[in-house]
Amino acid sequence: MIKQLDRYDMIILMMAVALTCFGVVMVYSASSVMAAKKYHDGFYFLKRQGIYVLLGFTAMYVAMFIDYETWRRWAVPLLLVCLGLLLLVFIPGIGGTAKGASRWIRLPGFNFQPSEMAKVVLIMYMAYSLDKKQEKMKFFSTGFLPYMVLLTVLLGILLKQHDLGAAVTLWAVAFAMLFVAGARIQYFLSVVMLALPILVYVVMFEPYRLRRITAWRNPWADPTDSGFQIIQSWLAFGNGGIFGQGLGEGKQKLFYLPEAHTDFILSVVGEELGFIGVMVIAGMFFLLVQRSIRVALTSPDDFGRYLAFGIATLIGIEAFVNISVVTGLLPTKGLALPFISYGGSSLIISLFAIGILLNISSKARSGS
């Protein structure tokens, strides 16, 4: 088995497994007290995360052995399925709503978030399409406009779901892939100029988004409401110092820091393992993205290159945005820390994407 694994990029595999296992430990540390109070079971979130990890590792293992060329044939059908799933969340009785956001499809014992699937499916479709177009990328009508139409549809649905974090992530990944495919800079600038007024409208005319911007600029102006979460996050990092309070010894997770086991789990890491712990996690993400880009550069064909680059960009952007949010560099938005935050959809899809990367790495090493 070890000899069989030698054909894959072992650093990518080890980083993904290590981050996931570390995430299980931190989910339990961040959630046990809250789970005991709310569900009368301190292991409630740990047990569920354990199931998600098993499903995620299974998805990664299967994807490792599926030739990545298979996703070329399935790109369009999967995109259509994904669009259908994104629309299903609006159907009463099927879609689930939490805190004003409609992002989930209710399944027995599990809520599935189609936007997580949309991220990887969009990468598959763009890799397939960009590989076909090649020189057409220099022309606006054939090499740029069709992707803007698709992005507009996807972003419109996600904004209707009140999922600005996923919308921004899709936009950033798509633009990165178009850039490496050779789209002209002036196309990007023109779209950004057109999109800015829309972005301002989306933020200014949604009270909760405007409150997030205000809290980001000055959280102390409303320390008990809109600024509460980021202030508690800063307190967690401050309490942690260089070496941390010790695993399990954090105080901010004790009903002070909202979403301690999901979006703000890195704040718990900062309090319990200190600056050094946070830097180790950031370094692991950096190494994972760097090796993923290396896989893209050594892929035997353009489809594999675009696919690997898209996945590397997705992981890098999600990690960067989450770290920036919990440290106050960006306004608060609901975006999980890949592999570490509690949640099934994000974890399973992320590990599945790692499996695809590993398959591409095996082809690159064999030269086929």
Rank of each mutant, 00 (worst) to 15 (best):
L130Y: 11
L159N: 14
G238N: 14
I281V: 15
I265P: 06
I356N: 00
F175M: 15
G246Q: 13
F303G: 04
M148L: 14
G248S: 12
Y187K: 04
Y28A: 03
R211E: 14
H40G: 07
W74N: 05
I293E: 09
L85D: 01
Y208P: 05
R211K: 15
Y147W: 07
V295M: 10
F112V: 05
A312L: 12
I213H: 04
L54N: 03
A296R: 09
L122A: 11
K133S: 09
L297S: 13
D301Q: 06
I315Q: 05
E272D: 03
F285W: 07
P114M: 06
T298A: 12
M10S: 08
R305I: 01
G334T: 05
I360M: 06
T327D: 06
P197D: 14
D301E: 14
L330A: 13
L80P: 07
D263S: 08
I12G: 03
F22W: 06
L314T: 00
I157Q: 13
Y187M: 09
W234K: 09
G109A: 10
A36P: 00
V81T: 13
F275Q: 08
S341V: 04
E272N: 01
H261P: 03
S324L: 07
Y8E: 05
T58F: 15
V191Q: 09
V24T: 11
G316E: 10
A167T: 08
K37T: 03
V33K: 10
V203E: 12
V89C: 06
I51D: 01
V268K: 09
F320W: 08
L287K: 08
F320E: 04
L87G: 03
K333I: 14
V289T: 13
V202M: 15
L347K: 12
A353M: 10
L170H: 12
D301Y: 04
T298C: 10
T327N: 08
V153K: 03
L287T: 12
R217F: 07
L159D: 12
T70E: 10
R217W: 08
L347Q: 10
D163K: 08
L307A: 08
V120R: 07
L337M: 11
L86R: 01
K253L: 10
Y61A: 07
I123V: 15
D41K: 05
S350P: 03
Y52V: 00
P223I: 09
A319V: 00
R7F: 01
G246T: 11
F275M: 15
S361H: 03
M284S: 06
L337E: 00
I311P: 11
E135Y: 03
W234I: 01
Y68S: 02
V89K: 05
L288P: 10
S102Q: 15
L130V: 11
D222W: 09
S350Q: 11
K119S: 02
Q229V: 01
F255L: 14
L335T: 00
D67R: 06
N322L: 04
D225M: 03
F140E: 12
V203W: 05
A282Q: 01
F65A: 00
L79Y: 14
A35Q: 13
M14G: 09
V192T: 11
M126R: 10
T262K: 01
G367D: 12
I51R: 02
N322V: 02
A172V: 14
Q4G: 01
L151A: 12
I2G: 15
F22L: 13
L347R: 10
E135C: 00
K253A: 09
